[in-house]
Simulated scan of single mutants.
Amino acid sequence: MRYLVLLVLLGLPIGVAAQQERLVRLYAPEALVETGLMKHILPRFSLKTQVKVALAETPAAADMVLGAQGRAIFEGAGQAWHMQIVAQDHKPTARLADWLTSDVGRRTIFGFAPDGVALFAPPAAKAVVAVEVEMDGDAQLGHKVSRVKCARCHAVDEASRMGTIGSTPSFFILRAFEDWDARFSGFYLLKPHPAFTQVEDVTDPFPEDRPSPIVPIEVTLDELEAILAYVQALAPADLGAPLQTE
Rank of each mutant, 00 (worst) to 15 (best):
D98Q: 14
A130L: 15
A127H: 11
E57V: 05
S160N: 14
E34V: 00
R25W: 09
Q232I: 01
V133W: 06
T220M: 02
V145L: 07
I165E: 14
L189W: 04
A229W: 02
V133F: 06
Q79M: 11
F112E: 07
F110G: 01
A195I: 02
E246R: 07
G166W: 08
P192K: 12
G111V: 03
F184Q: 05
A130G: 11
W180Q: 04
P211F: 02
V131E: 03
G186L: 08
F171K: 02
I14Y: 14
A54L: 14
P216N: 09
A124I: 05
T58K: 10
A226E: 04
A127T: 15
K126N: 10
R25E: 07
D222A: 15
A229M: 07
A31T: 13
V219N: 06
A17S: 14
V131T: 14
A182V: 13
K52W: 12
I165G: 04
I14K: 15
E200W: 14
H143K: 14
T101Y: 05
G166S: 10
E178Y: 12
V24R: 11
E158D: 05
L23N: 10
P207C: 12
F177H: 13
P211E: 00
D63H: 15
P114D: 11
G142M: 06
R210T: 04
M38G: 07
F171C: 00
V51L: 15
D136G: 07
L189G: 07
D238V: 11
W81P: 10
A60P: 00
S170C: 13
V219I: 15
A28R: 00
F74P: 09
L96H: 15
E200F: 08
R175F: 03
L23S: 14
T197C: 09
R210F: 05
F112T: 03
P211D: 00
K48R: 08
F177A: 03
E30I: 14
L243G: 03
F187D: 10
E223N: 03
W81V: 07
L37F: 01
A155V: 13
R161S: 08
L190I: 15
G142P: 03
V129Y: 10
V117D: 07
Q79E: 12
Q20P: 01
A124C: 01
S167E: 05
F187K: 04
